[in-house]
Computed example of a mutant assay.
Amino acid sequence: MISLKKILCLLLALGIFICLALAKPTAPAVEQAVTASSVPVFEIAEPRLNAPDRQPSADASPPSEHHYQVEDAAAISQLPELPNGCEAVAATMLLNWAGLPVTKEEVADALPRGEMPTENEDGAFVGGNPEDVFVGNPYDAGYGIYHKPVFFTLNSLLPGRLTDITGTSFENLLSVIAAGKPAMIWATEHMDTPYLDLEWQDDEDRLVEWYQPEHALLLTGWDDDYAYMNDPMTGQQEAYALSDFKHVWELMGSQAITVN
């Protein structure tokens, strides 16, 4: 027969066993050290699925954007007849837009011409001056011609309808296009940075500095990023970065002719 003392000992042992079984286990020392460290914890938010698109408020203004394009300015190619006649072709496009049905050959033939630079017996190069004449031959070997003689020629073909705006600001040049009028401009092929190709003396001992790759085009449009122009070399409208065009046009003397 079990004594009261043994029963009490069994009950005490059973109670201790139950307490140990129900007690929360203690984390090891290493786990406690990591948990209690000062390393920051960054919470990454879950993406919001099917979140509504953010719409601009009714008071928000649309971004400023400019786009101007002159209508009915047909492009003409200088090739194959005028391999060095970009100025004659750009001028022809301007005259055609103004209502004069002249051909590029007629304009090329009307431009005054001067000699290509050649070395004389003293070893100096002497030739025509593009400020006065077309240096060389637009049908063959040639350099080119600048705004003054081109304007005089165009004014003789279409009196009182043209304006030489050479030296104007770039902003004023763009305002001409915004007003719906094209402009013949001097720049370079592909808007490449011009470089000094050759120097010579004209028949009045004036120094001529010729920069390549000189090119004349018809400016017909622009927006915030590009200038659009009829390119005689391709016979199509081409787009050139507006900043590149500004840089090259100013380096080439800010030359331009437009219609009144």
Rank of each mutant, 00 (worst) to 15 (best):
T118Q: 10
D140E: 07
E119L: 03
N129A: 03
T118W: 04
N120I: 08
G127P: 01
M116Q: 14
E131P: 03
D140V: 03
A124S: 15
P138F: 02
Y143T: 04
G128M: 08
F125H: 13
V133P: 01
T118L: 12
D140I: 00
D132L: 15
D140M: 07
G123C: 14
P138I: 06
D140W: 08
V133E: 12
G142K: 07
A141L: 06
P138C: 11
N120F: 08
G128V: 01
E131F: 04
A124D: 15
N137K: 11
P130I: 03
D122G: 15
M116V: 12
Y146K: 09
G144Y: 09
G127W: 01
D132A: 14
F134N: 06
G144W: 03
F125Y: 15
D122M: 15
M116C: 07
G114R: 04
Y143W: 14
G123Q: 14
N120Y: 08
P138K: 05
P130L: 06
Y139V: 00
N129L: 01
T118S: 14
G114C: 02
D122A: 15
G114Y: 01
E119A: 10
E131Q: 13
Y146H: 15
A110M: 11
F125Q: 11
G136D: 09
F134Q: 00
G128I: 01
A110K: 13
N129P: 03
E119Q: 13
A124P: 01
Y146D: 13
V135C: 09
G114D: 02
H147D: 14
P117L: 09
P112S: 00
